[in-house]
Amino acid sequence: MQGAGQGKAGPLAALKAVFWAFFGIRKRQAHDEVSHLKPVHFIVAGLIGAALFVLALVTLVRLVTGKG
């Protein structure tokens, strides 16, 4: 019965779930939407999110310190 929703909620849904997890907030409905995804989707989404976060921090520090 998950086949209908599985096509919609792909790796982008995992990215969305990881994004909200970085903030520590997520609704029960969001958990139900991504509960059928493979763990590899969350691992890749987490790595992408962490890389973007570090890149944003480095960019912000360079802008503030004037070394950019």
Rank of each mutant, 00 (worst) to 15 (best):
G24W: 15
G49W: 03
G46F: 06
I43W: 00
V58Q: 09
A17R: 15
R26V: 00
L52N: 08
F23M: 10
A30K: 00
F42P: 09
E33P: 01
R62F: 08
A51R: 08
A50T: 04
V40F: 06
K27Y: 03
I43R: 09
H31I: 13
A13Y: 05
A30I: 01
V54Q: 13
A17V: 08
G3W: 03
V44Q: 12
F42Y: 05
H31T: 12
V34Y: 01
L63I: 10
V18Y: 03
K16I: 04
V44C: 02
H36I: 13
A21I: 01
S35H: 06
Q29A: 07
L55K: 13
L47P: 00
A50H: 01
L47E: 14
G24C: 07
R28A: 08
M1R: 04
A56N: 10
Q29N: 12
A14L: 08
G46I: 03
K27I: 04
A4M: 05
V64D: 06
M1V: 14
L15I: 05
L15S: 11
G46L: 05
L60W: 01
L12K: 13
E33L: 14
F42V: 13
A45T: 03
G68Y: 00
L55E: 00
K67E: 12
V40A: 14
L63E: 13
K8D: 11
G10W: 07
A56S: 13
G68E: 10
G3V: 04
F42N: 06
G10V: 02
L63K: 15
A30V: 07
V18G: 01
T65I: 07
V40G: 02
K27P: 05
T65N: 10
F42C: 10
H31S: 11
L37F: 08
V64K: 10
I48E: 09
G68L: 11
T59V: 03
F42D: 11
V18T: 09
H36L: 11
V34T: 12
A4G: 06
V44R: 05
F53Y: 09
A30E: 12
G68H: 06
L52F: 15
R26N: 11
G5E: 06
I43N: 00
